[in-house]
Amino acid sequence: MNFSSWPLLLVVDVEGNGTNPPDLVEVAALPVRDGRPDTSTAGTWLSKPRRPVTPFAARVHGLTNEQLESEPGWEEIAAQVHTFLGGSWICAHHAHVDYRVLAAHLPQWQPAGVLDTLRLAKATYPGLSKYTLDALIEHVQPDLSAAPAQRHRATFDAYATAQLLIAMAVRYDTWDQLVAAAVPPGLPGAPEPEEEPTLW
């Protein structure tokens, strides 16, 4: 895989307040450049949700209402996040979730395409019993020594997802092959289905 052929790609992860639909409390966007996560230019935002963080959500990601009390509301940072994401490709684990939540919070935003490491892992490592982020970390054993924060924080999960993406991408020869394996149907960037030949 020639990583220099990749378009601008941001690995994203979001954390919510536990309601349905969720209010965002953390967003991370980590560029992948030349086959490496570039933490020096990553974007990270904390946001005070409109509705309180549920006890369950706080237990998962560790962000409490007290910690978020002094953070800006989403409307104060939405433009920053939108500008940072721009029209680049994004990648996430179980990307439908992150893409839909971000798109709901950024109605004018449209990425060039959406890679899903869950879909990619099923194509790359057929036969695993689970394809959760934790299961893939255990299977691939990526180097997470430089990952910020801890598991279930957006910054950590974006970093882990980036390392998994890079580890799987080396098994594909071209960007187009990677896209064919990693972009779920119906999401931006999905290859057009080949037309069935018409029999006359």
Results as ranks from 00 to 15, higher is better:
Phe3Val: 10
Trp6Gly: 02
Trp6Ile: 00
Pro7Met: 15
Leu8Asn: 09
Leu10Tyr: 12
Gly16Thr: 08
Asn20Ala: 12
Pro21Asp: 14
Asp23Ile: 07
Leu24Met: 11
Val25Leu: 11
Ala29Ile: 07
Pro31Met: 08
Pro31Leu: 09
Pro37Arg: 10
Thr44Val: 14
Trp45Ile: 07
Lys48His: 11
Arg59Ile: 09
Val60Phe: 11
Asn65Thr: 10
Gln67Pro: 01
Gln67Glu: 13
Ile77Arg: 04
Gln80Ala: 14
Val81Met: 10
His82Glu: 15
Thr83Gly: 06
Phe84Gly: 00
Gly86Arg: 03
Ser88Ala: 15
Cys91Tyr: 01
Cys91Arg: 01
Asp98Arg: 01
Arg100Tyr: 07
Ala104Cys: 05
Ala104Arg: 14
Leu106Met: 08
Gln108Phe: 10
Gln108Met: 14
Gln110Asp: 08
Pro111Asp: 05
Ala112Ser: 12
Leu115Trp: 11
Leu115Pro: 00
Asp116Tyr: 08
Asp116Thr: 10
Arg119Asn: 04
Ala135Trp: 09
Leu136Val: 02
Asp143Pro: 03
Arg151Ala: 07
Phe156Ala: 01
Asp157Cys: 07
Ala158Gly: 02
Arg171Ala: 08
Tyr172Ser: 02
Thr174Met: 14
Leu178Gly: 02
Ala180Gly: 06
Ala181Gly: 01
Pro185Ala: 14
Leu187Asp: 02
Glu192Tyr: 01
Thr198Val: 13
Thr198Asp: 11
